[in-house]
Simulated assay, not measured.
Amino acid sequence: MAKHTGPVCKICRREGEKLFLKGDRCHTEKCSFDRRPYPPGEHGKSNLRKKQSDFGLHLREKQKVKRMYNLMEQQFRNYYKKADQTKGMTGLMLLQFLERRLDNIVFRLNFAPSRKAARQLVTHSHFSVNGKSVRIPSFIVDEGDEIEIKENKRDKKIFKVAMEVAKQNPIVEWLEVDPDKFKGIVKRLPEREDMPQNIKENLVVEYYSK
C-alpha cells in the first residue's frame, strides 16, 4: 500500500478519533477533527450510523495504529511478525516495538511536534544514539540508550522551541529528558500502561490471526 500523501487531518476523521498527526495544530481550534468529527466525503455524516462488521472493526483498528505511527502496510506487517515470534503477549510486544522506534522516541521526548516531523529530522541526521550518528527512523532503542541532538544542529529554531516545550510539558515515565544538554535517556522499556490507552491491540492481533 502506498504512503499517504494527502491531508493528514482526513486520517483522523476517517478513524473516528484524534491521532495528533499535525503536532500543535491538533491542540487548537483549527483542528479539523474537532470541527468536523465525522468521516470525510459526501456521505461522511451518514456513515456514522452504519454498524461495522467484526472484520471492519479489526481493520479500522489496524489502520489507526499503522497511521498513528506513520508506517506503510509492509512495515507494520513486519512488526507484527516480529512481535508474534517474540516471547510475551503479541499485542504488547507489537506496541513496544513501535514505541521503541527512534522517530517515536524523538517525538515522545518533545524534540519534534509530531512523529512525521521526527522521522524527517532523524533521516536528516540530526540525532545520535550513544554518541553514534543514526539516521534510520526505525532504529530500535534499548534500555539505557541516550538520544542526543547533535551539537552542530542545536541552534536550529525547531530545537530551541522544542527545548522550551520539553521544559514545560511532562513526558512518558519510561523516558527522561535533559533540555539543557539536548539529551534524552531511555530509563526502561515501556509497559502497557505507558503506551497509548486508545489502542486496542487485541483487535490488531485478531486481524492478522485470521
Rank of each mutant, 00 (worst) to 15 (best):
E193D: 14
M89W: 04
P7L: 07
L19V: 01
P39T: 13
K200T: 14
V172Y: 03
A112C: 03
E146F: 04
P196K: 12
K45N: 05
P39D: 13
V106C: 03
C31M: 14
V165S: 06
Y79I: 00
P37N: 13
L57W: 02
K66G: 00
L175F: 06
L92A: 12
G23I: 10
I185T: 13
D194F: 10
F139D: 03
Q63F: 02
M163V: 04
E201V: 12
K30M: 09
A166V: 14
P179N: 10
F107K: 11
R101P: 05
S114K: 09
H124G: 04
F97K: 00
A166Y: 10
V161F: 01
R101W: 05
Q63E: 12
T90M: 03
Y80F: 13
D24E: 15
K81D: 00
R49P: 00
N70A: 11
S138L: 03
E17S: 15
V205P: 06
Y80R: 01
N152F: 05
S32I: 15
E146V: 10
S133K: 15
R101H: 08
K82G: 01
C9M: 06
I199Q: 02
T86V: 04
K210C: 01
N169V: 08
K51R: 14
T86W: 08
L94D: 05
Y69I: 12
K160I: 10
Q75T: 00
L102Y: 07
E15N: 15
I140S: 04
